[in-house]
């Protein structure tokens, strides 16, 4: 009976996988099309040639996306890890504040985070008690504001994943390290961080995933500094996307497949802590 049930769930799973992968397959398929229209005419590598010879601005946008994703994920992971360690082992006045504030972004539509940062970076001046004060921090929208936004929305995830890992293991080893005379820094570097490594790595990978996947928040804080998704969006908005995008996306998909298999040990923690 349960086997029968599982064959039903298997069918749904296979259906969902087809659903998830068909668009990617279509993307790759048209990257090898000679024609620009979405009608397949003849096999050709012309878009790959164009990608590698005359698409320097696209590559700039691409590397900007990757750099921002790596930097924002690293920042979120470091700050999130430290906070998780603090919250797990200590009692301090701001603990409730930390627990509450890291939870709020999860229950807010992402457009809110994007537009609130847009207002914040506008730094509009207001008279406050006779002084003209900037509301927020005036900053030109660009890679730096995208970086700040990405690190911000990744932070709660990195924090929660490390916290989930810390909740899992026996904290008496920390006491043992202290009893044996380890200083706080030694305990941190030799015991706490090695033990929370799976949480830290999955926090980093989740941040990377969210950063690469995001469009909505980037849209509000990118200004003229175009990242890969912004380039695609503006081309779509104007009505015609160059198949060069297909070629670059295909290379990216191949890259993510390779990366996924390299990181397969850690990927299961992504689900475990979500």
């Amino acid at each position: 009976m349960s086997r029968k049930r599982r064959s039903a769930s298997k069918a749904v799973f296979i259906g969902c996988m087809v659903f998830l992968f068909v668009p990617l397959a279509v993307l790759i398929f048209f990257s090898f099309n000679e024609n620009k229209a979405p009608i397949f005419t003849q096999f050709s590598l012309v878009w790959y040639r164009k990608l590698f010879t005359e698409s320097s601005s696209l590559w700039t946008a691409f590397f900007r996306s990757i750099t921002i994703a790596l930097a924002a994920s690293a920042t979120a992971t470091v700050i999130g890890t430290l906070a998780a360690i603090g919250v797990h082992w200590h009692r301090f006045p701001l603990k409730t504040y930390v627990q509450a504030i890291t939870y709020i972004p999860l229950v807010l539509p992402e457009i809110i985070i994007g537009m609130s940062l847009l207002a914040f970076f506008a730094g509009i001046r207001m008279p406050v008690f006779g002084h003209s004060l900037a509301i927020g921090i005036p900053m030109t929208l660009g890679w730096l504001t995208i970086f700040i936004a990405h690190a911000t929305f990744c932070l709660p995830f990195a924090y929660m994943m490390v916290l989930a890992r810390l909740d899992e293991f026996d904290s008496s080893i920390i006491e043992a390290a202290r009893d044996l005379g380890a200083t706080e820094v030694q305990t941190l570097l030799r015991v706490i961080i090695p033990v929370s490594k799976p949480g830290i790595i999955s926090g980093f990978l989740t941040s990377l995933t969210l950063s690469l996947e995001d469009f909505t928040i980037t849209y509000f804080v990118s200004g003229v500094s175009s990242t890969m998704p912004m380039v695609v969006y503006s081309q779509m908005y104007k009505g015609g996307v160059s198949p060069v995008i297909n070629a670059l996306s295909s290379i990216m998909i191949l890259g993510t497949v390779v990366l996924a298999f390299l990181a397969r040990r850690w990927l299961k923690y992504i689900a475990a802590s979500s």
Partner: peptide
């Protein structure tokens, strides 16, 4: 783990690129 990787791979392609794929 294998099935998890399968589910996560499409997730690493940006949202807007996947919309573009659906449009085509």
């Amino acid at each position: 783990t294998m099935l998890l990787i399968l589910v996560i791979i499409p997730f690493w392609t940006n949202f807007i690129i996947r919309i573009f794929a659906w449009k085509s």
